[in-house]
Design a protein around this nucleic acid. Structure first.
Lengths: 367, 367
DNA sequence: GAGGCGACTCGAATCGATTCGATCGCGCTT
DNA sequence: AAGCGCGATCGAATCGATTCGAGTCGCCTC
């Protein structure tokens, strides 16, 4: 029994009460056709009397073929997306642009890839899972998604929906909003090199789908799927080929702290004089760890981040970081979606990060 | 023509190719019924060959009567919701809880109320507006909504959808997650009184739908519709009945600064010795303004906020504020939705704010 | 006064899937 | 060997609205 309440009125009921046909009633509501004003009023009155709440959006969107909803696909759990300032800025930008066509934003967590028709866990859940492949959306924006989603993406394409990705691996039929992760990180690394640093460590964003934490090995690199993390790693190693890298399990302050505590446990003279963190939150964690260990920043340890979000409670530090235009990236994605929905072609957009030098980087200690 | 591409395959096509009936094909996909493994494989194979992307979510949700989407209604433009840390924490909490039933979150900006069947602006927009009343949602969470939405809310009720409100005016059939705005502010005000303050000013959140800025007059109070702002104002005036209040046009640092510059333009001796701001962001603005005017905080001006979000770049200040459990409020709303969707009754939850004393409040200057 | 034109209204097909009840075999029991 | 039970499959109704083509009716024109 799909209907929860018996006898919720339908358009047909309203039409009957108003003494018109369903088609006329529909016209009266949608306004797309000639309806006599008197008739229209009669229909609206009937609707009021029956407490009819207007055409059912489900039926409407089935018939019309459009739902007015844009999906934003993230690969973490939904709640984590709200923790990351970069995500938020990008949401913001997307919302700004699709607001122009009055579309709404559906936040979707990518489900673990499941084969076409794979068995769902519980057949009679009160609410069925909304996955990327079966959400009533008109288009999708992928945020930092990995090839793990390839199946879902091709399902979207099979549906004929426009798909735009903000960073991530290029895929057939997906418009990518690009970010110069590799080159930007290389610029940041060069900045360290110029200051005289030789021993550098890297803390990366999660590389693989399972978010493995720890030293980045060949094996981990091989299964690495995060374009963003890999590109930034590549940029850093272009300058410091032998730099050790540690993967964090997420872009959180505490993950940065944890990795840094491990990195900095070496005796001075062996331990790195600089750490390249792949996000500002990680970098803040590094600074916290240094404070705990009594290692002065930037005198004995330089720290560089990525993102350019202004992190809370960092005073007196001003993080040296690579500032990326997250809000603008979101807008570009939104604009692309709008254009594609209107039947046009959207072109690839590439964004550039700017090195903002703060007071967390300095020449390495003389010794 | 609803379909954009000609000949996108449907379940019937797949069934035909697999040599089974549509009903069997449906069973093969949904898994809710006995289907021979061989048949199932045949159907899935046919689907692959035709590039069939799975059952159309629109049709599915029409038939099933559920879409798996929970709407979160905000009254600002969507993008502004992402700017407010309290909103974000609440989103986060909601997402956490509804994640348990695999539902997704639809962010909806409340449209200006329009009468049932009111004329839409453009009949042939590429994407139709998604308003509160016609979004394919299974339930709605209202975030800080005003009576302006009364029509939309009653439409939701007519649809038989569960509706939960986080703060806001109680409405028939709407479960409210409450916050002790009035009493909490009163406690904060009493803290100032105990320190000896007499001349106090208040900076409120937007009171009315139009977000009028400026001195709070009787007229403004009369059209005030934000429960949160009104309750907090009431709490402050319970202690300082004659305190002047200024409405900000939004919860932003710059709005707080702007209001404070006006408030503090009086000669010392007449100007307030303390300012009660209705949000932390506003309070930070007050501190900024005081810095600009060379007024020492807390020596010559005490400042108290509301929210307990840790605002960036405030050092060396630790804001005295009323800490509210925003994340928990979101969770409570999410839990209530889940319970109601499962057919149960959800009970009202009330949250309490705690006064956290920082270093922005002190006794007023002796003079 | 007949023809014609418009403004309205209606019937019926359609969107694409789900689901209930009925049917059909087929193996097993007694 | 007849009867039974059960798993697999199918037909048809249904979900609730939109839309197209086909009337219907009144009024204007020549």
């Amino acid at each position: 029994m799909p209907d929860q309440d018996p006898a919720r009125p339908t358009l047909a009921d309203v039409a009957a009460r108003a003494g018109v046909s369903a088609s006329t009633a529909s016209l009266a509501f949608s306004g797309s056709g000639p309806v006599a004003e008197a008739t229209r009023q009669r229909v609206l009155a009937a609707a009021r009397e029956l407490h009819y709440a207007g055409p059912d959006p489900r039926a409407r969107s089935l018939r019309r073929g459009r739902s007015g909803i844009i999906g934003v696909v993230i690969e973490e759990r939904v709640r984590e997306a709200f923790r990351d300032p970069i995500h938020i800025a990008q949401f913001d930008g997307i919302a700004e642009e699709i607001g122009h066509i009055d579309a709404a934003l559906l936040i979707l967590a990518a489900s673990p890839a499941h084969p076409l028709g794979g068995v769902k866990a519980m057949p009679t859940e009160p609410v069925r899972p909304v996955t990327v492949e079966d959400a009533p959306i008109d288009a999708a924006v992928l945020m930092g998604c990995t090839p793990r989603l390839a199946d879902s993406v091709s399902a979207l394409r099979d549906r004929g929906l426009p798909v735009v990705a903000i960073e991530g691996f290029p895929a057939e039929g997906v418009l990518v909003i690009e970010q110069d992760n590799r080159d930007a990180t290389e610029r940041g690394a060069r900045h360290l090199r110029q200051q005289g640093h030789e021993r550098v460590a890297i803390i990366t964003l999660p590389l693989d789908a399972a978010h493995h934490r720890g030293l980045v090995t060949q094996e981990l690199l091989a299964i690495g799927s995060s374009a963003t993390a890999l590109q930034r790693l590549e940029g850093a190693r272009a300058v410091f080929p032998d730099a050790r890298a540690y993967a964090a399990a997420g872009s959180y302050v505490d993950e940065g702290r944890r990795a840094a505590l491990e990195i900095l446990s070496l005796p001075e003279g062996e331990r790195p004089t600089a750490i390249i963190a792949q996000s500002d939150l990680l970098a803040v964690g590094v600074i916290r760890a240094a404070e705990e260990l009594g290692i002065a920043v930037p005198d004995r340890l330089s720290v560089i981040g990525f993102d350019g979000v202004r992190v809370d409670g960092l005073w007196p530090y001003e993080l040296t970081t690579l500032e990326q235009p997250a809000y603008e990236k979101g807008r570009a994605a939104g604009r692309a979606i709008v254009r594609m929905l209107e039947g046009g072609e959207a072109e690839v957009v590439a964004f550039t990060s700017v090195l903002r030098v703060g007071n967390t980087t300095a020449p390495p200690p003389a010794g």
